[in-house]
Nucleic acid binder design. Sequence first.
DNA 1: GCGATCAGTT
DNA 2: CACAACTGATCGC
Length: 683
Amino acid sequence: MSSFEGQMAEYPTISIDRFDRENLKARAYFLSHCHKDHMKGLRAPTLKRRLECSLKVCLYCSPVTKELLLTSPKYKFWEKRIVLECVLSRRALFKIVVTLLPAGHCPGSVMFLFQGNNGTVLYTGDFRLAKGEAARMELLHSGGRVKDIQSVYLDTTFCDPRFYQIPSRGECLSGILELVRGWITRSPCHVVWLNCKAAYGYEYLFTNLSEEFGIQVHVDKLDMFRNMPDILQHLTTDRSTQIHACRHPKAEEYFQWNRLPCGITSKNRIPLRTISIKPSTMWFGERTRKTDVIVRTGESTYRACFSFHSSYSEIKDFLSYICPVNAYPNVIPVGMTVDKVIEILKPLCRSSQSTEPKYKPLGKLKKARTLDRDSEEEDDDLFDDPLPVPLRHKAPNQQTVHPEVFSTTAVSENEPGKLRQSTGCHKAESMQSSLVANFVDCEESNSESEEELEIPASRQEDLSPVTPSQQKADREVPQWEVFFKRTDEVTDESLENCPSSTEAGGSLSPKLFSDSDGDSTHISSQNSSQSTHITEQGSQGWDSQSDTVLLSPQEKNGGDVTSLNKTGCRPRIKETVPASHLEQNVLCPKDTHSDLKSRDQDITVVPTVGEPTTLTGREHIPEEKSLLNLGTNADSQSSSDFEIPATPEAELPKQEHLQYLYEKLATGESIVVEKRKCSLLDT
DNA sequence: GCGATCAGTT
DNA sequence: CACAACTGATCGC
């Protein structure tokens, strides 16, 4: 469970995944994915009120997250305040470019990469990325190497040697596919119940099962996927299917009596034969034994390995590749302490590999790192990698994008795009489709607050200069294809770059024998293709099957990859994403905010109008150009210069005063802050 | 009555 | 195991 408080030391005026307490003062909000524990305070009356008073405050998230969030009436009030791409900026001098990177955690999940005056910072949200995947993310690179990242706020859920390895998604998926295949092919009355928690994240499992067997999965609700056809087509509310993922408070009890959560017990008057599969995280310690990806836990109950989070070794691979100066854990695993986690992370950070003593323990993330402002005043410098980062080149195959291309936004792999991808299949993950946005510089803001007041609500739909189709896409069906371009086939090279796949059969891979719990049974299969199959008889007979169903992670993954590819989902993408696939989304800020106070931390959020889809054509825009490529959306994006203070005593700055402030800002001069006027903005 | 918190359950 | 959610009890506004 994330214990991240919502703010990052470098950019304290924005809040991520937390919307209560101190975060109520944030200038901009970010939501990495739609799990409740990352939405604390998001629907609280206090925040709602703040939103009503501060028209510039917006929420930034991926298109899928927006879609999922707005499905609930409780969050409808956010509708007009959600921005899908972004550049937070405060005029040309202070801007924060935010890049969304696929997180592989659940549909719509993303990591946020902030690049601005206080350094480049990565907030991972919850993530699951296989080894080598960071190296394949174009947007994490610049000039052929990984960006110089100051700090990483990391999902350390399994950052404990105890969770050394967790079978890959592909391994887990193929284990489940075989288990299901062995059951449902027996007769139309043999059904499986996927005992999933009511969270987003299992979609890729559903879509793959549906794809593989041509059977839709029964779920209680599918309204949230109404605009995600690639997921929707694999789900149904018709109970007469052999694969169920429906739920009920007394589901387990029902199951005991051969009754599914949705209530059905028979088909054509023939009693159903059911087995339950409970996705659970199973891991392999560094030197301990492994378990199988499928473990039988009872007569007709199984546990299947499934993890939304990276394992210890995946976290280490990711962090060591990024090699930030600082790494802060977002989660303290049970039984661990902050210090212990930091001890693990520290050696993977730059400070331990260079002489720069930059590591800061987790704690008050108060001080922004000091920057040499002069060096960052130039826009051009802002996005460069001024500090030589250990030369770690990204995986060769990925080089599709020109280094100079400035892409800002990528979509998460999970974004339901094409079915499989959307669900978080590997494919999508590894690939990166990125959105290249145009960078609009925020020159002057229009200071007409009246006018601006209307912007938040109408901006995206009415004022946007975006093409109609774009707007339409935005409002209606997300154009997932745009976000997910799949890469091509897996290549040998890619394998090289993909330790995880190659190592699957190596030392890290679990042994196939199962020594798991005494009563559990497992079938070890050498490769997915032949893996297990369930014995014919005893469907209900626990004994009869006990020696049949063990699926273990495949040592060889040839089969694994193959089967996944077949379903369209999980190929390792080694490949690169053609530059053409990058989209740029940038936003343009037209507005300026007047936070006079701490300029380093001041941030103005400017929502962008542009629809990602429209931007696809501009793939190779050099950064420089993209920065200048403003005009188009500027008008529609203008936002107010001020927010309406939430605090009663706050007053609106006068026009003349603003003018003065703008001039100061433009020249980089320091400004004497009059706190009274920006109390809300102070941090 | 609603929301936040916490303990317990799955 | 841990996750993400849900339920119920309690407390406060």
